[in-house]
Nucleic acid binder design. Sequence first.
DNA 1: CTGTTAGCGCTTTCAC
DNA 2: GTGAAAGCGCTAACAG
Lengths: 348, 348
Amino acid sequence: MPNTHTITIADVARDAGCSINTVSRALNDLPGVSLRSKARIQASAERLGYVPSRVARSLLTRKTRTLGLVVTDCTNPFYAKLIRAVEDAAFAHGYNVTLCNSGEDHAREVRAIKLLIESRVDGMLITPVQFAVDHIGDLVRRSIPFVLVGRRFLKLDTCWVMSDNAAGGRAATSLLLSLGHRRIGHVTGRPEISSVRERLEGYRAALTDQGMAIDESLIVRGERDVDGGRQCAHRLLSSSSRPTAVFAYNDLQAIGVMRAARERGLSIPRDLAVVGYDNIELSAYFEVPLTTVAQPTYAIGGSAAALLFRLLDGADVAPADRTVLLQPELIVRASSGGCPPDAGERPA
Amino acid sequence: MPNTHTITIADVARDAGCSINTVSRALNDLPGVSLRSKARIQASAERLGYVPSRVARSLLTRKTRTLGLVVTDCTNPFYAKLIRAVEDAAFAHGYNVTLCNSGEDHAREVRAIKLLIESRVDGMLITPVQFAVDHIGDLVRRSIPFVLVGRRFLKLDTCWVMSDNAAGGRAATSLLLSLGHRRIGHVTGRPEISSVRERLEGYRAALTDQGMAIDESLIVRGERDVDGGRQCAHRLLSSSSRPTAVFAYNDLQAIGVMRAARERGLSIPRDLAVVGYDNIELSAYFEVPLTTVAQPTYAIGGSAAALLFRLLDGADVAPADRTVLLQPELIVRASSGGCPPDAGERPA
DNA sequence: CTGTTAGCGCTTTCAC
DNA sequence: GTGAAAGCGCTAACAG
């Protein structure tokens, strides 16, 4: 017959024939309990199947040992990896993580964060939708520790961890330039998102570095999935002066670009060179393996968690350590059509 | 200057000039508060930035409005989708979800579940590692509601939601048989896992249905990723009497199989027909689009959450409703080499 | 309609 | 070494 009543510390105390707080001390390895008592208490707790309540402890200590993690969509491989990194770190510290998906919807993000505040999570890791900032400012006002992951606000002085998207965008574009391309298209996304804007900035910078003018008609915006990339590519490729290469905001879009090219009978990389971003697991396994920019995704999640834990420890983190910018890595495969003159790797 | 002190219900009561429980009633829309008081209280709460503490409420109500979700790896697209479904359902009910990854490691699963018990989650959704069952039995003993997702135990009478893996395995294999294949290989996984075993059973059943003998040498076990599939395929293809078709436990392995075939100069589907399982997003976009078995993943997560909520409502669920078996769907694309005689869809 | 009281399960003084 | 008592923030009787 099931226990309808959860065993409390009082039950253990009664069973062990001592007071409640002796049990508390014994079970928490605090000094001031004889070894004999301790053994007896542990035996009682074990036999009764006592499991301490974090709820009760949290009320008293005002620490829940829980982290809130808000991403836009756990279904996106990038966030999936990030989540895994955060959960691994939290688990190692004995922390729980409460996961929320905003679905790139501002209202849902606001509600999720409110829920997390109600739950009194010790701190939060957030990939903000970047539609507005009030609710983020609210966290500061309430002095709830948090760190932004993968995206940041220009006007808000907060902790954040991300990779250098501008550098990544520049590297991708420079590669194409070094291969002789002069008309390079860019598939981008919603410009409020810092990572979107920064990759675009990198693209522009690479062109400008070479003294080239920016042709705005080569920059097209679409959804961040395969079909979004496909549609953008069709728009680019139907133009009279179509590009010979495309750098896409992410791998999913890049795959869509390759698909669109195939639909038009274009061969990759001969007729169109393609570079993506994220190095998703399957990008290496396509018909034409995808050249892409790899983010140190797991490290981003791990660093963000580590930074948050430092904040939770109450250590005052030096301003320089409040933000972490990790470097991405260009992975050259076949879809870009060859290696730049000074690169070592050759496509298979 | 940040509030170092969180606003409590007492602060609101003081501010509004009434008692604590009038505030509680007003804010919880309970009857017995004049409209005037209610308005005043709401204004105070708003102005002070009061956010009720779920921790305190939980201690009293013994309900945390939190679900525990244990998967093996959120990085796996199948689980990512499942997580999303569960989180969406939980969010709609005002519930939080605490996510844990077992990493297919029994000890970590046990620890994770212990953590969730300590956290007094109202219920759990679990994809068990299936190395042992004691800790699951423990949940029953403690009468903590839970439902298994995607995997089940034969010897344990629990709630579960999954898709019919045997039917899926049978459909995949039958398709290949109907196309004339007589030597069909199967790439499988760790047999303790129910979904692995059941897909294999479906494979065997399809062959037996046709009065064919099972050639055990055509069943090879490997890791559940691209490389695992690749290695298995090489083992199968180096055999003297190699198969003309392969059904893989999942799409990642199937992609590995296609890769191995290409490495050996074999063309798909001409020299080797391939069928996967899961219908991951990118499976349609490969050089040879992958024929696969689609699970209603989002529905599995949603049903599991719905079932758990019914359990939490205290409704006694009829035995027939304690388990849900959803039907998978065969998605025929090019990798299987054509359509069975009676199927409608033709590969592109 | 509103206030007083008790207590959820635990940790933390403070006595003994 | 050990126990008694207070209280974390809130809800749920019960009075008034």
